[in-house]
Structure formats: structure tokens, C-alpha cells
Design a protein around this nucleic acid. Structure first.
Length: 790
RNA sequence: GGACGAUUAGCUCAGUGGUAGAGCGCUCCGUUCACAUCGGAGAGGCCACUGGUUCGAAUCCAGUAUCGUCCACCA
């Protein structure tokens, strides 16, 4: 206990801090005057880039000090270029920045790649809306090229806004690697991916029933459909000897099949395939009886007619029995000539007239006026989905192919697999770990029911499909296609249709080539994100070093949209998993637990909060009390509370500096007396504990424990008792305590830095007054080396 | 219809086999000495309910209820 003085004099770290307390400490901590210059300091240091290392010998205590250090890599989920960032983005940026700063301080070569997403459908419709509001024009008035120029202009503005917002949040992203899902490098990756999938037979063009949005005039994928409940009348119509139920009489013109369950005793007298003449909306028709198990006997009368062109279930029944299918409604929601007198009328207007006519012909048996019915809408701000059979591009998820390379456990190079099997195996074999675990089950369930992915969109903004046609006959366009009876919907040999088809990365040479007008689902390009940002398809050093990435952090709401598709693309194209751990955080809701939205007016703007309370306060408020996968609530009051914490830390630092102004600082603290030894032990137990928590993604616990230690142990207990001790204690005890306070302040600043980087760095700067960028807090070594895991 | 989550102090949430915790709020007291963006003290909970396992359950198991989310989609 008494060798402290001796050690002090002999230690190489011995030095005096004759520093005068910086005048900034005479006032409360002011984030507004601090954060921007701190961020600039970090950014200019180059330490956001993994290549910037501290060139020093093994004796240094710096964090980024080894050129051959192992890597830690991660990608920012690219925010959509549709506008400003919200609290969900702020939560993502915070969680990821915590991980990145932590691993950087632990000496890893840490890469965090920023980027933005073109978000085709959302961005295009947003710009169309603005264009119409401001100039009263549609995209067709401008034409494709001029319209796209407008979208690009809008996207660029959004992108600049997003970048500056991320900087305000303190995100230590490597800006030199900034990517965009629609930039040249990513476009090349998209074309490469498409071409390879096409030649492997995994992308095909086919006539299938798709979710058509008549408002935005495009298809949308199954996952983008949002169901809403609506009360609507339900009609029981007389269909010859049957009574059939329908909520949509306006689609019934062409119905010539009546479907019943094969085991339904009520209809046992009718044989499958039996033809029955009957009077229908526009005159006499001959109906055919179909027996199919898709029918729910208990529902309605147990009999229904089908409209295969405009209903998924009906389409599937028609597929099974090879039935005719006919288009009733066009792409704009207008009735076709089959509707007779109603042709050319929009379905909304026609409906009441059709019901009147049915009533006039005494074809309505009864009506259920308050039937609760679920309608499909386009969740990306579109209209009511009207299913249509259309020629579209699909990714075949169940088709077998030989995988070219594989580092996936249980899958050998050259093995025959399906994309579904790849997606399933990468998680089932434990190579990808999903946190919280319960989402793995949800993921598997989603895979099991997954159908071929419709990837073509009739949008202008996005990756143009890399397929070119040279027509050798006079066939008309895709939309006038008449469905051939008794033919498979898929047409795997487009060469036989009288046109040349070219699929490739570059535009084909020669005259007469015309590119497919459609664009790709935005998730096709985001699916490539983990490797397209690292240079793929080129075999770059980045790809080699940083792929697979270590962690993917995102909200659980895009598990299917994005996470699953990244797994699909990466396993197939790279033969490897895209990331080792998926950390799914919850959604940030308002104080009352409601989703934040513009229409509810309950949006809390992260930048406004930063301006009021500082980025550190906002960051802590988004971390503490949020378990993975669970939604959390944020309120201005909570953020305000954490502003107080920044100030508390500020004053702790001030107190310690004031009371140790002439004290020597020793790196290796040696306690005098049992009390200081006890405190040292307590501090180290905490540091090991929270290191473990961060490694296990329990950020909320680590943050809370640090908060609690700083305020209630360090400030309330240790500083309070030190006041007396530093006045009246023995010289040895005083010296030891001063040492301990300095030591603790340093550890606390380091361990809090990933969570609240600005205030900790500012205190560090004022305290240590570093002469070089290597001495910044951001690249100091994490206070505990390694912890025993669990 | 299926799956999952939540249910703990007034509010927001941690805790996940061993005598109930935090933040905010509330009450009282204090504060020229780092900080009123403060300190001290305190009130407040049969841990949703019913069974079971266990020496012992907020914690594990089964079921029920309420709320929420996702998936399916019955025309």
C-alpha cells in the first residue's frame, strides 16, 4: 500500500498537469457550441476510414494502432431519398455508431459504409405529387428523360440533407465510400446480378397474376401489399340453380365457372365439368361446374364463380383446372367491351349501375349490407390494388440450379439448390444469427410461403431492366397480350416469339435494339447492398477484407423486404452469407405508443431535438430502455432528461480537474488503502460487465449501467466523500484519491464515448489538450482489453 | 384462422430461479463550498389471472384474459 510514491517517481508516464481549468467549464455544457466543431475534428482526422491507423509502437495505448488488425464492418441501411430522416433513422444511426466506435476503440479496422436508397416507387410518386401540385403537370407531360432529371434533382437535395443529418447525429461513417443504390457502380452490380440470374434460369418473364396499382400504374410485390378493413355490401346473386356470394359484382361479367367443394353434399348432384345454361348479367351463357378444395364450404353458400384475371385465388383455381381467363378491367380500372353497355366506364361508377341492372333482372337474392371485407392497398402510398394478369419479370425461388461457389455450411460448391434453400440454410445452419432469436422463426415461416418474386415495375425511376429486344414481326406491345387457353403462364423461350432478346451488362451493338421499358423493384438493388458497396462484381480488396459484414442492424419491419433479400442475393451471387449477426431493433413510437406519421402530426424531428438538447441526449434517449425487437417510445421529456446527464458529466469533469490540478497522473493506478482498492474493483467490474453487454448487443443495459454509475456512484458517492477526504485526509490518502479520480474520469469518458461521443470528446479535448489527432478520445484504447465471454 | 410479443411503482420500461429495480413524476428537507440541468430522505407494487414444477417462481411449464404486431386471406 505504501509503494505508490516510489512507483510514481519511476514510472515513464509520470508527468504533471499544470493545466488551468478551461474557462468553458465555468458555464454549463453547451452542445450547440460544441458538436459541429467536434464532428469536424473527427472527420478531418481520417479515422472514420479503416485505413487511417495510428502509426506507433506496441507501447501505445491507442485504439486504432495495428495495421494488421482484424476487421469490423457494417453498412448503414440506406435511407430513402424521399425526404428527411426520422427518429427511426436516428435510432439506427445511434445503435450502429455505438458498435462502430466501440470496435474502433478496441483496435479493429472498422468500416461503416454510408449510402442512400433511390426507393423507386416512393421517390417517383413523391416527385409526381410535387410536380402536379406545383405545376399541374404529370410525368407524361415531361417525358421520361425530363422527368427523371427532376427526380434526380430531388434525390440529390434529399441526399445532401440526409448526409448532414447523419453528421449531426455523430455517425462516424466512412464518407469516402458513400454509395447510392442507383449510382454507376451499383447499376453495374445490378445488371451483373440480373444477367447471371437470367442465364441460370432464375429470372424469367411470365404471365402471372400480379398486384397492379391503377393509381401509380405499376405492379407491386406481395410484401408491399397492405390490407385494410372496409365495410361494403355483400351480394348473393342467382347464378342459374346456384346462389353465389360476391363483394365485387362489377367483375362478374365474364364468370363462366361455378366452383364448389368436392365434398359439399349440397352440390353432390352436379358433376365436375357439367355444363349449365343460365341467364347472366348481359344475357344467356353456359356455365361449367368446377370442384376444387380451395372453396370454404361454410362461407356464404359454399359456391362461387371465379374471375381468374382479377383475383389471386381464382387465378390459382384456373391454373389447376386449365380454365379460360379473360380480362374484364383494364389497367386504369375501366371496364372492357366484355361488360357490354358498361364498357368504358370506371368500375367505381359502374358498380351501382350494375347492381341496379342485376336487381332489375331479379338476379339478386339478398344483400348483406355490412359485410367486413379486406381490401388490398399499395403500402407505398398508392391506390387500391387491382390484381391483373400481366407479363412481368420474376425471380424463381423454387427452381433448382447449380451453385457456382459456396462458403455456406451444408451447401457444397456445384450442388443443386434453390434460392429458397439458400435463404433457409444460411440461417438454419447457424452461420447467420438473428437477434432476438424469435425472428428466425418468423423468417422461416416467410420463406415457406414465399412465391416467385415479381421484380419488374412500370416505373420510370429505377434500374432499367437490362434486357433488349429486336422485333422481327409486327406484334403489338406487351399490354395487349391475350392469354392463350390451356397454356402455361410461363414462357421460358422468348426466342420463339418472333423477336430477338439480349440480356447483358452492356447495351448490345447493332441497330434496332430497344430496351425493356420497365425498371426493377428497388429491393433488387438493395439486396446487393452488402457487396455492391464493396466493389462487386470486381474482386476488390474491400470485398475480401470486409465481406461478410459483421453486423446488420435494422428495424424488424424490413426483415422480409431487405434482410431476406440480402441473404438471397449474397448466398447466390457471392456464395457467402452477407452478415454474421442480424440485430433487429424495434420501432420508435410516440409517447402514446402510436406510430409517428405526418398525418397524425406526432412526428418528433431528430434534428430539432439535437438543436434543442444536443445529439448526445437524443442518442441516449433512443438507447436506454429499448430491448431488441421491442418497440420503444420517445418523448421530448425523455430527451431533455438526458441533456441533464451531459451536464452532470461536464461538472464531474470540472470537479475532478479542479481538485487534481497539481496532481501527477499515473497510468497504472495503485490504490492506497482498502477504500480506493474497493472502488477500483467496483469500476473494473462495471467496465467488464458493460463490455460484455455491448458485445452481446445489450446496448440499453450498458448505457443504463454507465449512466447509473456515473451519476450515482461516481458523483453522488465518490465525489461527495472525496470532498472531506481531500481536505482532511492524510497526504498518502489524498494522493491516492486524486489518482483514482483521474483514473476513473478517464475510464468513464472512454466507456461512455460510444454512447455520447460529443460531450466526452469535448471534455477530453479540454482536459488532455491533445497535440496530435492520435490523442483524440475517439481513437483511445477501450478501457478493458478482453472479457471472459459469459 | 395461424404465429409471435407485451402485461412489474402514477407514467415509460429493465430484471428472467434465491429477501422487488431504474428513469421521469410525486412528498418532505437541504443547497455561498463541481452541478438547481443539484443534493439528501421518503411514499408508492399480492410483478395480469388460474393451476403446476421446485426447498424456493415476477423469473420455468400449462392454460385463461386483455392489448399489440406479423402472416394467411373467405369469393
Amino acid at each position: 500500500m505504501f509503494f505508490l510514491t516510489v512507483r510514481l517517481l519511476s514510472t515513464p508516464f509520470f508527468c504533471y498537469h499544470f493545466k488551468v481549468l478551461h474557462e468553458k467549464f465555468l458555464k454549463p455544457y453547451n452542445p450547440q457550441e460544441t458538436e459541429d466543431h467536434i464532428y469536424t475534428l473527427w472527420e478531418e482526422s481520417g479515422f472514420f476510414k479503416p485505413e487511417t491507423r495510428i502509426n506507433a509502437d506496441a507501447e501505445t495505448r491507442m485504439g486504432a494502432d495495428n495495421q494488421r488488425a482484424s476487421a469490423f464492418s457494417m453498412l448503414l441501411p440506406p435511407p430513402n431519398v424521399t425526404g428527411a430522416l426520422h427518429m427511426g433513422h436516428a435510432a439506427t444511426a445511434t445503435i450502429e455508431d455505438i458498435m462502430v466506435r466501440f470496435h474502433r476503440m478496441r483496435g479493429k479496422k472498422t468500416l461503416w459504409v454510408p449510402g442512400t436508397d433511390h426507393a423507386a416507387i416512393a421517390t417517383q410518386s413523391k416527385v409526381e405529387e410535387l410536380l402536379y401540385q406545383k405545376e399541374g403537370k404529370t410525368r407524361h407531360d415531361l417525358g421520361r428523360d425530363a422527368f427523371l432529371a427532376r427526380v434526380e434533382e430531388f434525390a440529390e437535395t434529399s441526399r445532401q440533407g440526409i448526409i448532414s443529418q447523419l453528421k449531426k447525429m455523430g455517425a462516424s461513417l466512412d464518407w469516402s465510400r458513400l454509395a447510392f443504390t442507383l449510382d454507376e457502380a451499383r447499376s453495374r452490380a445490378v445488371r451483373s446480378a440480373f444477367t447471371r440470374m437470367y442465364h441460370d434460369g432464375l429470372i424469367y418473364q411470365g404471365h402471372r397474376i400480379v398486384n397492379w396499382d391503377p393509381k401509380l400504374q405499376t405492379t407491386v410485390s406481395d410484401d408491399e401489399v397492405e390490407w385494410k378493413e372496409e365495410a361494403a355490401p355483400f351480394y348473393y346473386l342467382k347464378y342459374g340453380p346456384f346462389v353465389i356470394g360476391t363483394a365485387r359484382p362489377e367483375t362478374k361479367f365474364g364468370d363462366k365457372y361455378v366452383v364448389v367443394h368436392p365434398k359439399d353434399a349440397r352440390y353432390a348432384n352436379y358433376a365436375h365439368g357439367e355444363r349449365i345454361p343460365l341467364e347472366w348479367i348481359n344475357g344467356r351463357i353456359t356455365a361449367t361446374v368446377i370442384k376444387d378444395e380451395a372453396i370454404e364450404m361454410e362461407f356464404g353458400t359454399g359456391a362461387m364463380t371465379i374471375t381468374p384475371w382479377h383475383d389471386t385465388t381464382d387465378f390459382e383455381i384456373a391454373e389447376r383446372h386449365k380454365l379460360e381467363r379473360e380480362q374484364i378491367i383494364d389497367e386504369r380500372g375501366t371496364l372492357l367491351p366484355i361488360a357490354g353497355e358498361f364498357a368504358g366506364m370506371h368500375i367505381k361508377k359502374a358498380r351501382t349501375l350494375i347492381v341496379e341492372k342485376l336487381r332489375g333482372k331479379d338476379l339478386i337474392e339478398r344483400t348483406d349490407e355490412r359485410y367486413l371485407h379486406r381490401i388490398a392497398t399499395n403500402s407505398r402510398g398508392g391506390g387500391v390494388i387491382e390484381p391483373q394478369i400481366k407479363k412481368q419479370w420474376f425471380v424463381a425461388v423454387n427452381k433448382r440450379f447449380r451453385i457456382q461457389e459456396s462458403r455456406i455450411k451444408n451447401i457444397e460448391k456445384g450442388q443443386e439448390v434453390t434460392l429458397k434453400e439458400l435463404m433457409r440454410t444460411a440461417v438454419a445452419n447457424g452461420q447467420i444469427k438473428i437477434i432476438p432469436e424469435r425472428f428466425a422463426k418468423i423468417y422461416f415461416h416467410w420463406i415457406d410461403r414465399l412465391r416467385d418474386w415479381c421484380i419488374s415495375r412500370q416505373l420510370w425511376y429505377g434500374h432499367r431492366i437490362p434486357v433488349w429486344y429486336r422485333r422481327t414481326d409486327t406484334r403489338t406491345g406487351i399490354s395487349n397480350f391475350q392469354f392463350p387457353i390451356f397454356k402455361q403462364a410461363q414462357n421460358p423461350n422468348p426466342q420463339n416469339t418472333g423477336e430477338e432478346v439480349y440480356v447483358g451488362i452492356e447495351t448490345p451493338k447493332g441497330d434496332g435494339w430497344e430496351q425493356d421499358p420497365d425498371t426493377l423493384d428497388t429491393w433488387f438493388s438493395s439486396g446487393l447492398w452488402t457487396f455492391s458497396t464493396l466493389g462487386w462484381p470486381a474482386q476488390t480488396k474491400d470485398l475480401e477484407r470486409y465481406h461478410p459484414t459483421d453486423v446488420l442492424d435494422t428495424g424488424y419491419d424490413i426483415l422480409f423486404f431487405w434482410v431476406a433479400r440480402m441473404i438471397l442475393m449474397s448466398t447466390y451471387l457471392v456464395g457467402d452469407i452477407p452478415f454474421r449477426t442480424v440485430y433487429l431493433h424495434g420501432l420508435v413510437r410516440d409517447e402514446g405508443g402510436k406510430k409517428m406519421s405526418k398525418s397524425l402530426g406526432n412526428i418528433i424531428d431528430p434534428v430539432e431535438m439535437i438543436e434543442k438538447y444536443g445529439a448526445d441526449a437524443m442518442r441516449l434517449s433512443l438507447i436506454v430502455g429499448t430491448a431488441p425487437g421491442n418497440d420503444s417510445r420517445i418523448s421530448e421529456n425523455k430527451i431533455k432528461g438526458y441533456k441533464h446527464f451531459s451536464n452532470k458529466l461536464w461538472n464531474i469533469a470540472r470537479f475532478i480537474m479542479e481538485h487534481t490540478a497539481d496532481a501527477p497522473y499515473e497510468e497504472h493506478f495503485t490504490a492506497y488503502g482498502t477504500r480506493d482498492a474497493e472502488l477500483w474493483k467496483e469500476l473494473h467490474a462495471l467496465l467488464e460487465d458493460i463490455t460484455d453487454d455491448i458485445l452481446e448487443c445489450r446496448f440499453y443495459l450498458a448505457a443504463e449501467k454507465l449512466y447509473h454509475y456515473t451519476w450515482h456512484t461516481l458523483a453522488d458517492r465518490i465525489l461527495e466523500e472525496s470532498k472531506e477526504l481531500l481536505k482532511n485526509g492524510t497526504p498518502e490518502a489524498q494522493r491516492s484519491r486524486r489518482q483514482f479520480l483521474l483514473y476513473t474520469l478517464e475510464k468513464v469518458l472512454k466507456s461512455l464515448h460510444p454512447f455520447i461521443p460529443f460531450v466526452t470528446e469535448e471534455i477530453w479535448q479540454l482536459w488532455k489538450q491533445p497535440a496530435t489527432k492520435e490523442e483524440m478520445l475517439m481513437v483511445q484504447k477501450w478501457p478493458v482489453a478482453e472479457v471472459s465471454n459469459k
